[in-house]
Amino acid sequence: MSLTGLFLVLFLVVHLAGNLQLLLDDGGEAFNVYTKKMTTSPIIKVISYGNYFFILLHAFQGILLYFKNRKARGSEAYAVKVTKAVNTNSFAASNMAWLGLLILVFLGIHMGDFWYQMKWGEVPTVVYHGDTYENLYLKVEASFSNIWIVLFYCLSMLGLAFHLTHGFQSAFQSLGLNHPKYSPFIRGVGKVIGVIIPIGFAIIPLYYFFLK
């Protein structure tokens, strides 16, 4: 879980950097150019298949873990259930599976909305400097004018925030990387990542809904 998780964090950072181009006030040019590059470069293609694989692997491991741990817990639940935690968010830590599931559902919808449209849907085109590009930007604008989609995106990002806050530092712990000098720093980075990445992603739909 830790290795796949850390890889996926890396993907999120790259994905966010690309998507933030949606905030540029250039009518979508930079984003559309970027989109084309991402969908045509063979290297990116290989990486993206790797990425799908890791997402599925991460989810598969998570599901196995969930069932193994549920079996270990036994059939009788506590009448009073409290979870205290040290140096991590106890809600996040004890609900990683559900948060992960939320993110998986989100991914499905998200991919259906954009990636599927790109691959197999009807996307209008646009011409910059003589080259033709698929205008995914228009599709983004259209989706993010729907309040339900915006709300679902924001909720999912909240879920991602919790998932990352615990997940990032947890990955280091699982890899055995715990040290009195460095662990506080790792936890700090985890918190920053856990806040900045989801906010970064959530800003895009909010920006389109309220300001466009």
């Binding site: 879980m1 873990l65 193994k68 741990n69 079996k71 270990a72 817990r73 979870t83 205290k84 935690a85 040290v86 140096n87 991590t88 106890s90 830590a93 004890s94 990683m96 615990h166 530092q169 947890s170 280091f172 712990q173 699982s174 890899l175 055995g176 990387l177 715990n178 009195p180 662990s183």
Partner: peptide, 29 residues
Amino acid sequence: GFGRCSNVTACEAECPKEISVANIAMLNR
């Protein structure tokens, strides 16, 4: 038949002897 650790850290929080989860990282190593 014990479960797998997902670093919830409830163990350390409830341990009457306050044993640290740093030991778990050491075990992993």
